[in-house]
Nucleic acid binder design. Structure first.
Lengths: 199, 199
DNA sequence: CGCGGCATTGAGGTGCATCAAAGACAGTGG
DNA sequence: CCACTGTCTTTGATGCACCTCAATGCCGCG
C-alpha cells in the first residue's frame, strides 16, 4: 500500500495545483511547503521534518507546493486508499484531527508573526521554535541546525534574505546567539532570545 | 447537552489562555478570533459567521480569543461531552476533519497574504474573499457587508486602520469599488479587483 | 585554481506606520 | 428637533523599518 521514495534537494514532492493523488510521511530530511504568486513572490508556510505528515488541506487540487530542501526519504500512500483506511480505523482519523489541530494552532502563531512582529522578533521566534521542536523530537535544542538557506528563512518569515542575515548578525552582536557556521546556531542566551521574540 | 446563548458586541466568548471548556456553533452574527502580543499588538486570525464552528486548535489552553463583533447567537457545547459524542459518531469526526482541513487551507492563504502581498493586494483579496464567502453561504456577493471596523480589518490584514482606509479610497478612485456607506461596499469592477488582488 | 552558490555588508529608496487633525454618523437627552 | 458626545473614518505630514540594488567575502567542489 505504501512506497518508500527518495527525493534530492530542490525536487518537488508535488506542486500547487496538482491533483492530490498521494499523502506522505517523512522518514528523514527536511521539506518545505509553499504558496506562490504569479510574479514569483512566495510564502513558505512550514518546514517539515522526520515524522511529519503531508497531505492535509487539499481540496480538488493541492493547495501548496512541497519541496525537498535536503535529501528526503518518504513513505508515499495513494490518497484514496489512505482515506479508505482512515474510514475503517477511527483512531487514525482521530490522530489526523489532532495533527490538523496542532497545525492550525501553528498557523495562527505564524499569522501573528507575519502580521505583527518586527524582523528581530520574527527571527528570534523562528530560532526558538526550531530549538523547541528539536527538543520535542528528542534531539538537542542547542545548538540549532538550519537545514535551509537565508532565502528560505526569509520566505518563511515574510522578510528578504538580506534582512534575515542582518538580523542574525544583530542577534549575535547582542549576545543572544553565536554562529558556528552559517547553518549551525548556538543559543548563547536563550533568555535574551525569548525576550526578543516578544511573548 | 447544548445551550443557546447571546453575546453583545465587544463581549468575549472566551479568552486566549482560558481553559477550553466549550465549543460553539454560531447561529447568527459575526465573531473574530485573535491572538495578541503583550504590548497590545494583535492579529485577527479569522472572521466567523453563521454556521461556523469554534473550538478547533485548542490544547491545554485556548490558543486565541473569540470576540463578538455584532450581536451574536451561539449554541454552546461542553467540550468533554462534545468529544465523547464525536468519538461515538465517526461521521462527526470526519466532518470536523474537513472543517480543520478547510481552515488550514485558508490559514495558508492568509500567510501568503500577510507575508508577501502589498496593502492594495491585501484589501482587494479581503473584499473578494468576503464576497465569495457570502455567495458560498447562499447570500449575494455584491454589495459586500463589512460587519467590522477599519481597525479590525487592519488587525486581520496586518495593516493599520489608516492604511486600510487609504487603500479603500484608492480602490474607489481606481473604479474597482464604491462605498454605499462605510460598511457596505459595491464591487463595481470585480475583474479589476481580482486583478489587483494578485493571483 | 577557478567556478558557482550562498552569506554578508553597504548605500540608498520606498511603502507603510505614526502622529495629528478634522469630518461623518449614531445615539442620547434636553 | 437639535445640540452634544463618543466612536469611527478619512486625510495629511513626516519618519522609519525594511526592501532593493550592488559589491564583496566565504566555502565546497570539479
Amino acid at each position: 500500500m505504501s512506497v518508500k521514495l527518495r527525493f534530492e534537494p530542490r525536487r518537488y514532492l508535488f506542486d500547487e495545483g496538482d491533483a492530490p493523488r498521494y499523502v506522505f510521511s517523512i522518514a528523514s530530511g527536511t521539506v518545505c511547503l509553499s504558496k506562490a504568486l504569479s510574479d514569483g513572490r512566495r510564502q513558505i508556510t512550514g518546514f517539515l521534518f522526520a515524522g511529519d505528515f503531508i497531505g492535509l488541506a487539499h481540496g480538488e487540487t493541492c493547495a501548496y507546493t512541497a519541496e525537498a530542501l535536503t535529501p528526503v526519504e518518504v513513505c508515499r500512500f495513494p490518497r484514496d486508499r489512505f482515506e479508505r483506511y482512515m474510514t475503517e480505523h477511527p483512531h487514525v482519523e482521530r490522530r489526523l484531527l489532532q495533527i490538523a489541530s496542532t497545525e492550525l494552532a501553528a498557523a495562527q502563531d505564524q499569522m501573528l508573526l507575519l502580521g505583527r512582529k518586527t524582523a528581530t522578533e520574527r527571527v528570534a521566534s523562528f530560532l526558538i521554535r526550531l530549538s523547541d521542536r528539536a527538543v520535542a523530537h528528542g534531539r538537542s535544542g542547542n545548538p540549532v541546525c538550519l537545514p535551509m538557506t537565508r532565502a528560505e528563512i526569509g520566505d518563511y518569515l515574510g522578510l528578504t534574505l538580506e534582512t534575515v542575515s542582518r538580523t542574525m548578525t544583530q542577534l549575535r552582536k547582542r549576545g543572544a546567539i553565536d554562529l558556528d557556521n552559517t547553518s549551525v546556531v548556538r543559543l548563547t542566551s536563550e533568555e535574551t532570545l525569548r525576550r526578543l521574540a516578544g511573548v
